[in-house]
Amino acid sequence: MRPFARGENPKRELWLMWFAVLAFYQLYTVVFFVLTRTQPPGSPSYTAAEVPGWFASHHDGLLVGLALIFVLGGLSATSIALITYTIRRMSVSRAFAYSYLILYSVSAVPGFLFICVALTAGAMRPERDPRLQQWLYDLGFLSFSGTMGVFLVGSLVWMAAILLDRNRVFPKWFGYLNLCNAVTEVVVAPAWIFDRGVFAWNGLIAWWINVVVFGIYTGVFINLLRNVIIREDFGTGPLPDLPPRRARRHTAAAEVA
């Protein structure tokens, strides 16, 4: 453990990042599922005549919710930074951390920015030609659901790093869970072909099952990032084990003080 100046607590900075990650995913869920009701996605089988109705019924939510994302979406960088930090803490080559960082630095665009721009553009002028509205609607949802390659390869890079790592930063089972998540990202691909049924962008297989897997995966990795921060010793060797629950509450209290 490298020496720190008195009063300096490097973990405080990591905790700041971790709470930002937590805040981002809460925001993401609230905006997409509650405020804008863009998730679960609208039906891909809507005709040009039906799409303006969808925009009308979602108008206020879209403008308010997506404005929040435009203001605070940058918070997504914290989770990428924290994960890259943990890969740097592993015994593996830094190339893994760089790959992850570069891959995910473009993830915000397919991950949420594109759908936000397309749907706010649709909500801005409800009187626009319905066929153009339908185009924006398709563009929005397809850019969101149909662009999983970044996350697929990102998951695989993270998996490879975890499985090769000798510093025990993440448990190996989480490496395997990354593979499960990566494979479900493949399953969204048929959303480009089908406009109804279980493989469409709101389908049972292409959307519902994936969201459940992704939700569990996200919950698990946020929890594991927390464990890594608790275990971090700022050294280079294997990370120490998680201290028993009781001792942990003690050190947490000491850190706050």
Partner: peptide, 17 residues
């Protein structure tokens, strides 16, 4: 033992398909 997480999770995902 960690591999069994993949076995069990993958079988659940496939069962849902």
């Amino acid at each position: 033992p960690d591999m069994w997480v993949l076995v069990l999770v993958e079988s659940l995902i496939f069962t849902s398909y």
